[in-house]
Amino acid sequence: MIWNVPNILTVIRLAAAPGVAIMFLFFARPWADWFALVLFVTAAITDWFDGWYAREFNQESRFGAMLDPIADKAMVVIALLVITGFSGMNPWILLPATVILFREVFVSGLREFLGNTAGLLKVTKLAKWKTTAQMIAIAVLFSTGIFEHHFAERVFGMDEASIGAILSGGLPDDLGLGRLLWWRDATFFAGVVLLWLAAALTAATGWDYFAKARPHLADKPT
């Protein structure tokens, strides 16, 4: 392998993937959500940058072509597992996450089975849009946890009557509770919509790859 800038960034992105989950082992929320969000967004930016750098400065390599999609899948899969777990297995998140995970496993299996002919399953423009939609959806859903737990911090020790009075306008909202709840709900709704969009694109690209592979899956006549 060649240790050029794109390959180094790809290796760093691959190493960052489990770091998203590890944040929740060593830090309390919402700090864990903040660190996971920053780590995930930074890794996602390097995904765009290393591809651009490799093309612009002619540093594309077989190692990078192999590792880049693996790093992307590791980031998405681990982040989805974290978000699904902390959402309490919310079906609005669980179902599109299942579609995404199933497609990634299915296409990886196709590529492994095809062996030398796996080159026909090249990454398409639609697949790149799929990855972009996945990463944006995940980043937005990480921010939901930030607003939710900042709200929990500010109401700690308050009774329900006081919280209700503040949210209904009976008491001044000096802590910004209404704003935090609005952002929590807005980011959750936007994140779920984006995740379902990503799942639809994911399913479409999975079907496209399967259609391209079908001629190579047929048994030869005996």
Rank of each mutant, 00 (worst) to 15 (best):
M1P: 09
I2G: 10
I2R: 12
W3C: 03
V5F: 10
V5E: 03
I8P: 00
I12V: 13
R13T: 07
P18N: 07
V20A: 13
A21L: 04
A21C: 12
A21D: 05
I22Q: 11
F24K: 11
F26W: 10
A28N: 12
A32P: 03
D33T: 07
W34Y: 10
A36M: 05
L39Y: 11
T42N: 04
A43H: 04
D47E: 00
D47Q: 01
Y53E: 08
E56G: 04
E56H: 11
F57A: 01
F57K: 07
Q59S: 11
R62E: 12
R62L: 08
F63T: 11
G64Y: 07
G64S: 09
M66A: 08
M66I: 05
L67P: 00
L67D: 01
D68K: 07
P69N: 07
P69M: 02
P69K: 06
P69G: 08
A71Q: 04
K73R: 15
K73S: 10
K73P: 00
A74P: 00
M75L: 14
V76H: 00
V77H: 05
I78K: 07
A79W: 03
V82E: 07
I83Q: 03
G85K: 14
S87E: 02
N90L: 11
P91K: 04
P91Y: 01
W92V: 08
W92F: 15
L95N: 02
L95T: 09
T98I: 15
T98S: 14
T98Q: 06
V99N: 04
V99A: 14
I100D: 01
I100R: 00
L101V: 14
E104M: 09
V105E: 04
F106K: 09
V107L: 03
G109D: 05
T117Y: 11
G119K: 13
L120V: 11
L121A: 10
V123A: 13
L126S: 13
A127I: 02
A127E: 07
W129N: 03
K130T: 05
T131C: 01
T131F: 00
I136K: 10
A137K: 12
I138N: 02
I138F: 06
S143K: 08
T144V: 14
F147Y: 15
F147M: 12
E148L: 05
E148V: 08
E148G: 13
E148W: 05
H150W: 12
H150N: 15
F151L: 08
A152T: 00
R154E: 13
V155R: 06
G157C: 08
G157I: 02
A161G: 08
I163W: 01
G164K: 11
G164A: 15
G169S: 01
G170T: 08
G170N: 02
G170D: 03
G178E: 00
G178N: 01
G178C: 02
R179C: 00
L180D: 01
L181I: 15
W182A: 15
D185H: 06
L194W: 07
L195D: 04
W196N: 08
W196V: 14
A198E: 15
L201D: 09
T202M: 07
A204Q: 13
A204Y: 10
T205H: 08
A211Y: 14
R214T: 14
P215N: 08
P215R: 14
A218Q: 11
D219P: 09
K220C: 02
P221S: 04
